[in-house]
Computed example of a mutant assay.
Amino acid sequence: MRGVVGGVVVAGVVAGCSTPPAPRAAPGPTLGPQVRPTPNRSSPAPDPTPDDKCPEGGVRLVETGGDAAMGLRVEGFQLVNCGTEPYVLEGYPEVSLRDGRNDPLDVTVVHGAEGITTGVPNIEAAPERVTLAPGQAASWSVVWRNLVTDATVTATTVPVLEIAPRPGAPRLWLRLARPFDLGNTGKLGIGPWAAVTR
């Protein structure tokens, strides 16, 4: 290989300036423009909010992780008060489940775990009033079964979560790191708001 390279260098020197320089290497592939999912016209998804900027409503939705065992799924979330005023929550968030194009999915959302499972305290707890000072957070959880009982019904996967933390509040959108794999159960159970104690 060194002999080949040396020959190329000598040839270039002998030819002088009359020989054009060797062509430059072709540029590598470049990333094209990012394609965003087409939002539902009635409820368009807003642009993602940077982590260092508080959303319009003064709160931020955060996915905290969950557990999966024998087809039963539990996933947790927190609502963080990133604003400057106290934020009052009561009862349950209003939840809408979306597909990859941000269109609504036909899934029944129920309060609690009835018809899904039993023995999940944070899902089956009684609702309570929670007041978040700036910097504080409230938690809530969801539960479902990844179960396919009818091969003729397409299994549902939920990649996007939309919630209203309280009536009349700006809605929050979150693209899930762990999409909900509902099978064809068509049901999701949600728990009430609970104060996060540190």
Score class of each variant (00 low, 15 high):
residue 128 E to K: 14
residue 101 R to T: 14
residue 177 A to F: 05
residue 113 A to R: 09
residue 93 P to Y: 06
residue 44 P to M: 10
residue 194 A to M: 13
residue 49 T to H: 02
residue 84 T to P: 00
residue 21 P to L: 14
residue 186 G to Q: 12
residue 150 D to A: 10
residue 195 A to F: 03
residue 19 T to G: 07
residue 132 L to C: 03
residue 33 P to W: 06
residue 132 L to K: 00
residue 52 D to K: 03
residue 89 L to Q: 01
residue 110 V to W: 02
residue 79 L to S: 01
residue 36 R to L: 14
residue 14 V to M: 07
residue 11 A to S: 08
residue 117 T to A: 15
residue 52 D to Y: 02
residue 156 T to Q: 09
residue 120 V to Y: 05
residue 157 T to N: 11
residue 153 V to T: 08
residue 126 A to L: 13
residue 152 T to Y: 03
residue 192 P to H: 02
residue 190 I to N: 08
residue 126 A to Q: 14
residue 54 C to T: 04
residue 121 P to C: 03
residue 147 L to Q: 15
residue 131 T to D: 03
residue 28 G to S: 11
residue 144 W to Y: 15
residue 13 V to I: 15
residue 30 T to C: 08
residue 5 V to W: 06
residue 167 P to N: 04
residue 152 T to A: 09
residue 121 P to K: 01
residue 141 S to W: 03
residue 11 A to R: 06
residue 172 L to I: 00
residue 53 K to I: 15
residue 167 P to L: 05
residue 176 L to V: 00
residue 96 S to E: 15
residue 91 G to R: 05
residue 35 V to A: 12
residue 98 R to K: 14
residue 2 R to C: 05
residue 34 Q to C: 08
residue 123 I to W: 00
residue 116 I to M: 11
residue 83 G to E: 03
residue 147 L to N: 12
residue 130 V to P: 00
residue 98 R to G: 07
residue 157 T to S: 15
residue 80 V to M: 02
residue 6 G to K: 11
residue 90 E to R: 09
residue 29 P to C: 08
residue 37 P to Y: 07
residue 116 I to F: 06
residue 17 C to T: 13
residue 167 P to M: 00
residue 50 P to G: 06
residue 9 V to L: 12
residue 160 V to L: 09
residue 4 V to G: 08
residue 133 A to E: 15
residue 22 A to V: 11
residue 179 P to N: 04
residue 64 T to M: 12
residue 75 E to H: 11
residue 43 S to E: 13
residue 62 V to H: 02
residue 51 D to L: 10
residue 119 G to L: 04
residue 142 V to N: 05
residue 113 A to Q: 09
residue 183 G to P: 02
residue 31 L to W: 05
residue 162 E to Y: 01
residue 104 P to Y: 08
residue 82 C to A: 05
residue 109 V to Y: 03
residue 129 R to P: 05
residue 198 R to K: 12
residue 78 Q to D: 14
residue 196 V to L: 14
residue 80 V to T: 07
residue 34 Q to D: 12
residue 117 T to I: 10
residue 5 V to Q: 13
residue 144 W to E: 09
residue 127 P to L: 10
residue 197 T to E: 15
residue 125 A to Y: 00
residue 185 T to F: 01
residue 2 R to I: 13
residue 122 N to R: 15
residue 151 A to C: 08
residue 5 V to Y: 06
residue 156 T to S: 07
residue 162 E to R: 15
residue 33 P to N: 12
residue 186 G to H: 09
residue 61 L to E: 01
residue 100 G to T: 10
residue 85 E to W: 04
residue 186 G to M: 06
residue 137 A to D: 02
residue 130 V to R: 01
residue 73 R to K: 06
residue 4 V to E: 12
residue 12 G to P: 00
residue 59 V to R: 00
residue 95 V to Q: 12
residue 33 P to S: 14
residue 133 A to D: 09
residue 8 V to C: 07
residue 73 R to E: 10
residue 43 S to D: 12
residue 55 P to F: 06
residue 194 A to Y: 02
residue 133 A to L: 10
residue 145 R to N: 15
residue 82 C to N: 01
residue 45 A to R: 11
residue 70 M to W: 05
residue 150 D to Y: 05
residue 125 A to V: 04
residue 10 V to L: 14
residue 124 E to D: 15
residue 171 R to E: 00
residue 74 V to N: 03
residue 134 P to E: 07
residue 67 D to A: 13
residue 33 P to Q: 13
residue 116 I to P: 07
residue 7 G to I: 05
residue 29 P to A: 14
residue 114 E to P: 00
residue 75 E to L: 13
residue 31 L to G: 07
residue 154 T to L: 13
residue 152 T to W: 04
residue 117 T to M: 09
residue 147 L to D: 13
